[in-house]
């Protein structure tokens, strides 16, 4: 347990001080500012937002699908592929750290990164949204129309759901990273998969079981669909977590590391 905590906190501190996080923040800021400008120029019909500062952050989550997916994949590459390529994985494994502890620390690091990235997006959303539109008197997010703290609560809950779906996506990337030598290959593969994945979810029979459906809609369906639908969606994500997490660990456990 001590080793898992040490490795996870080390990774989290490394992420917080990394230049990449600054770059991601700047990219999201540019994207959000551009949306604000487009709203002012072309109006609500040409953008995905309703023009209220308080609902701007949650409205913007879905539009960041490809960026967020690629950033998660790059992060996964950093915590496993880069560790392998730089040999720092042996710095850790030559100490009394088991493969289970190491792999679990990677899973927890991806969870923290997903939540951190979502928090940054929400924070930028509030700053840019308020700057462009003011707080506004209404919170509008699909059928949810409210205001004040309730809107903040909806935003946070949607953010949690969004972050959780991307964490599962990160676990898939973690499993694949065991077969891939370069971070850029993994990022490209995962990025392209989100583009292709959007076509899979046109099939109603399978879409609730496809991760891409949850990347795009889990945080929305939570408020739009029935309670049982949301429970099933959550169950699907938990099933992904258990199956992909366990399969990834067993692969890693047996993997020869020529480092």
């Amino acid at each position: 347990m001590k080793n898992i905590w040490t490795l996870t906190s080390f990774e989290f501190k490394r992420t917080l001080t990394s230049k990449m996080l600054l770059v991601y923040t700047l990219i999201f800021t540019a994207m959000y500012v551009l949306t604000g400008i487009l709203f002012h120029v072309y109006g609500a019909d040409s953008t995905v937002v309703a023009g209220y500062g308080q609902s701007f952050p949650v409205e913007m989550l879905q539009s960041s699908l490809t960026f967020t997916a690629v950033f998660i994949a790059i992060y996964v590459g950093e915590v496993l592929i880069q560790e392998r390529n730089n040999g720092t994985i042996k710095f850790v494994l030559l100490r009394s750290v088991s493969r289970f502890q190491y792999y679990l620390s990677r899973i927890l690091s991806i969870l923290l990164f997903s939540l951190l990235l979502t928090s940054i997006m929400l924070f930028i959303g509030y700053v840019v949204g308020i700057s462009f539109f003011g707080w506004g008197d209404t919170f509008v997010f699909y059928s949810v129309v409210t205001s004040g703290w309730h809107g903040v609560g909806v935003t946070l809950l949607a953010g949690l759901a969004f972050g959780f779906a991307y964490f599962i996506f990160g676990l898939i990337a973690l499993l694949l990273s065991q077969f891939i030598q370069r971070i850029s290959t993994l990022a490209m593969l995962m990025g392209i998969s989100t583009l292709v994945g959007q076509y899979i979810i046109i099939y109603d029979q399978v879409k609730q079981y496809a991760i891409y459906e949850h990347l795009l809609f889990f945080h929305i369906n939570l408020f739009e669909k029935s309670f049982s639908y949301s429970v099933t969606s959550f169950g699907v994500l938990i099933a992904y977590l258990l199956v992909i997490g366990t399969a990834g660990y067993y692969l890693f456990k047996k993997q020869d590391l020529y480092v």
Partner: peptide
């Protein structure tokens, strides 16, 4: 093994500190 691997962005002391925590 083969060559010593360290976290290059950390100091020598910080690397050993991490190593000690994992011992």
């Amino acid at each position: 093994i083969e060559n010593p691997a360290f976290y290059l962005h950390l100091t020598a002391k910080q690397n050993l500190n991490l190593s000690a925590k994992l011992a």
